[in-house]
Design a protein around this nucleic acid. Structure first.
Lengths: 190, 190
DNA sequence: GTCTATAATCCGATAGAC
DNA sequence: GTCTATCGGATTATAGAC
């Protein structure tokens, strides 16, 4: 296939950025066009309607998820290490798109839930394979979800004033060490 | 003080309901008035502007938080049990308002973040007191945040089709048992 | 206190020039 | 492919009757 026009990608990134930093309400076609550096007419050439724009972002998430799950399964330190680290990382393109689509799901695009659930199920499967215990797996997934929620909050607000590191103490390394202990607790022959 | 007009409370509840089930975009003054069973003019008598309406909801969260933290500290089975159970419960009035304000924070009302952080800090303090270890405390808070995120998803969508219980297995009781083990791990003299 | 207009602005989408 | 101009409908807010 021919190289997709760069404008399309720029528009999707602008849409995701606005959704995450300023919310659904602020992500208007005018604002997205301005953020992407094109006119509203130019935007509407690539995405014929706002619904099409939202669907384009969901499709992008599905693409990125496939790549993310591959990386997760091949990660040297294991899928749990990968999942927890990336959940806490608010700088990656994947995180931006994932949180943006979750904003769509909270709003007027219930179909977005499907793309999010598929990603979540794939992660859960990979974690369950190495952890064994389903309750420990659920705890790990919930911790990751919590980190995602925190990361998305720090995204928002625009000023990104590095808000107070973590209310209760501990680095990501500390958290990973605790999770290792938790895993050992339920799967003693690890 | 004289009993506050019932209409005020109905309007705030309608606003919170729409924010949580349909998102920021759908929570227009028209829609809120219809949901509350009043006219737009009637709504604007109690809350002179949309910003005032949002501030009213934040103030309500602060009131409810104070009561919630008291209940949490007096909870027979302890603050951790209370926090995890209520995080998973999507039926309480408090949960509705908490999630609604988090939608405001993600949108055009960064001040909402303050009310949310205050609630979170109060919970964290109560958990840290009984758990001792800051890393375990953080893990517990993150699990609760994850449960909140899940509960808020089930709120949305309108149809509330009871979506698949939990991808990775385990009831709330299982989760609480695991957390107890985790606490014992780091505070052997508990 | 609550309502019915109505004004002013904003948003999504179309038409058509270049 | 990208732009400007513009229409119709939605959204916030005001004015004033009851």
């Amino acid at each position: 296939m021919p190289p997709p026009p760069a404008a399309r990608a720029k528009v999707l990134e602008a849409f995701a950025t606005l959704l995450v930093t300023q919310g659904e309400r602020a992500a208007t076609l005018d604002a997205v066009a301005a953020e992407a550096g094109v006119s509203k007419g130019g935007l509407l050439y690539h995405f014929g309607s706002k619904v099409a724009l939202a669907e384009g972002l969901m499709a992008l998430l599905r693409e990125l998820t496939a790549a993310d799950v591959e990386t997760m399964r091949a990660w040297p330190a294991g899928p749990v290490d990968y999942f927890i680290r990336t959940s806490a990382d608010s700088d990656s393109a994947f995180e931006l798109v994932y949180v943006a689509v979750s904003r769509l799901a909270q709003g007027s695009y219930p179909q977005a839930r499907g793309a999010l659930d598929d990603a979540h199920d794939a992660w859960t499967g990979a974690v369950l394979e190495v952890v064994g215990d389903p309750v420990v797996t659920r705890a790990i997934m919930l911790i990751g979800d919590g980190l995602y929620a925190q990361a998305s909050e720090h995204f928002a607000g625009g000023t990104s004033a590095a808000s107070a590191a973590s209310p209760a103490g501990g680095s990501i390394e500390d958290l990973l060490a605790l999770i290792d202990q938790m895993v050992a607790l339920r799967a003693p022959r690890g």
